[in-house]
Amino acid sequence: MVEPAGNDPRVARLESDNEALRREVVDARHSLLVNRDHVVGTEAEIGRLNRDILRMQTELVASRKRIRALQNRKKGLMTRTRDLEAKLKAARTRNQQLREELDRQVAARVPLSRRVVRRLRGRG
């Protein structure tokens, strides 16, 4: 005698197994989908970071150029400062010499009172 399918415990077990397998397949596909989102997102993030790096590198190159230009300008300004300092030093030395010369000349000159006295004494 054949058991009706609806009451057959084997059929019920198979249906239960089938349902469990179906859930398992959906779970697996769900995991795969979430994983795929993660991969696409990570790819995008890497792409975005690479673009950022590229932009930063471009900015870095431009900044380095600017630094080099500023360094050259600084160098030029330092040379000019040194030249000006040397000129200042020379001018100061000359100034000092002139002052000393003037002082000597002033010192060498006979004061007015003595010249008057000398004239009055008939020696001038």
Binding site: L33, V34, N35, R36, D37, V40, G41, A44
Partner: peptide
């Protein structure tokens, strides 16, 4: 839909559609 990985489950409420659209264009 499968290729882009569906909606981002890390975004339960807002911007999940924005991210989805970006993914569509990305591919």
């Amino acid at each position: 839909f499968l290729e882009i990985g569906g909606f981002p489950e890390a975004l339960p409420s807002n911007f999940n559609d924005v991210d989805l659209c970006y993914k569509v264009a990305h591919l």
